[in-house]
Computed example of a mutant assay.
Amino acid sequence: MGIIDDLKMQYKMGGIAVQVIFWNLLCFLISLVFFYQFQLGIFNYPNWVALSSEPSVLVTKPWTLISYAFFHYGFGHLFFNMMVLHFFSTLFLTFFNTKQFLGLYLLSAFFSGLAFVIAYYFLNLSSAMVGASGAIMAILVATTTYRPLMNVRLLLIGNVKLWHITAVILVLDFMQFRIANTGGHIAHLAGAFFGFIFIKLLQNGIDLSRILNNPFKKSKRAPFKKVHKNYPKSAPKPSSRIVVKDKTQQQIDEILDKISQSGYDSLTQEEKEFLFKAGK
């Protein structure tokens, strides 16, 4: 019970990125029980779990545009993807909230899967796909689009710009496009494109993550609406609240500038805790 309790605590306290990693781990355990062929040493996913490139199969099983992004072909595939997801999600959540993270993960998985099916249809190829790589690429490119000059510290290399890392990964995908795992590289590039579009739309006031958060529900907040109200003499003036908010925002901006110049690891523990509380 100690290990189970510890896992439950990590799931609750770890945030949305850790929860997504837990979902992937759970799906992998399920696949070991039901879809792993021990005699052959391979996973054999049915077409109601993996994403088939056949449009006729997709029409009858549309949920596979999401389900495929939580299953993997092996422990190495899972381990690498989850390590990369944890690293990139830390960068993304420095600037954006948990709903935007989850929305980007699911929507980019959907878009990447759809791009895979369409591309294989025109290439006259047939295959199936699982893996979170497309969604992970979307998270990386989204963060890079928003803060391309952000410094990231890499082991044995030191500080590099975030856009350098992204550029190298994209070039490798283009170089290996027709060599091996064509479907995977299509998903990577589609996810990268979606991550770019997601941020550009967000900068123009369109948050695609709202699609998964009741898009028909009217916002309780009325932005940019100025209201004049008379306050009794005994009531505290609202100006003090505005000052506090301005100071908080100023401190957030200073921390974000520090991240863009020196990387997330340059923050003090107090700055990290402040940024974490401010993002809630």
Rank of each mutant, 00 (worst) to 15 (best):
S52L: 07
K12M: 02
N47T: 13
V49G: 08
F28G: 06
Q10K: 14
S52V: 10
I4Q: 00
N47H: 13
K12F: 03
Y11R: 06
G2M: 08
Q39T: 10
M1L: 06
L32R: 13
G2I: 13
F22L: 02
W48N: 15
F35G: 05
I21C: 09
I21Q: 12
Y36D: 09
M9S: 15
G15Q: 06
F34I: 10
V18G: 00
L26F: 14
P46E: 12
F38Q: 02
V18K: 15
I42T: 14
D5V: 00
D6V: 03
F28K: 05
Y45L: 05
V33R: 11
C27T: 08
Y36E: 02
L51I: 09
W48Y: 15
V49N: 11
V33E: 00
L40V: 00
N44T: 08
A50R: 01
F38G: 05
L32H: 03
G14L: 04
Q39E: 13
G2H: 08
N44A: 08
V18C: 01
D6Q: 11
L25A: 12
V49I: 15
L51D: 02
M9G: 05
I4L: 05
V33M: 10
D6E: 13
I16M: 13
M9A: 13
G15S: 12
F28I: 06
M9P: 00
W23C: 14
L51F: 06
V33S: 01
L32E: 09
F34R: 11
A50N: 07
M13E: 12
L29Y: 08
I16F: 02
S52R: 12
N47Y: 07
I4E: 00
N24P: 00
V18D: 06
C27H: 07
G15K: 04
Y45V: 06
G41E: 09
Q39H: 11
L32M: 14
F38N: 02
I4K: 01
M9K: 15
F28D: 06
L29I: 08
C27L: 10
I30C: 05
K8Y: 10
F28A: 12
N44M: 11
I21G: 02
F43S: 03
N44Q: 14
A50T: 07
V20L: 12
M1D: 04
I42C: 05
Q19F: 01
I16E: 12
Y36C: 06
Q37R: 13
K12R: 08
Y11Q: 09
V18M: 03
A17C: 05
I42E: 14
Q37M: 07
Y36G: 06
P46S: 09
A17N: 10
M9R: 15
M13T: 10
Y45E: 04
C27Q: 08
F43G: 10
W23L: 15
I4N: 01
N24K: 09
S52I: 05
L29N: 04
M1H: 03
V20A: 12
V18P: 00
L51G: 10
V33N: 07
G2Q: 05
S31A: 15
I30D: 01
N24W: 00
L29G: 13
F34Y: 14
V49A: 07
G41M: 05
L7N: 04
C27A: 15
L51H: 11
Q39D: 15
N24G: 15
F43N: 11
K8H: 09
I30S: 06
I16G: 04
W23N: 11
K8N: 14
K8D: 09
D5Y: 01
F38R: 12
G15Y: 12
L40R: 13
V49K: 07
G41C: 07
K8R: 14
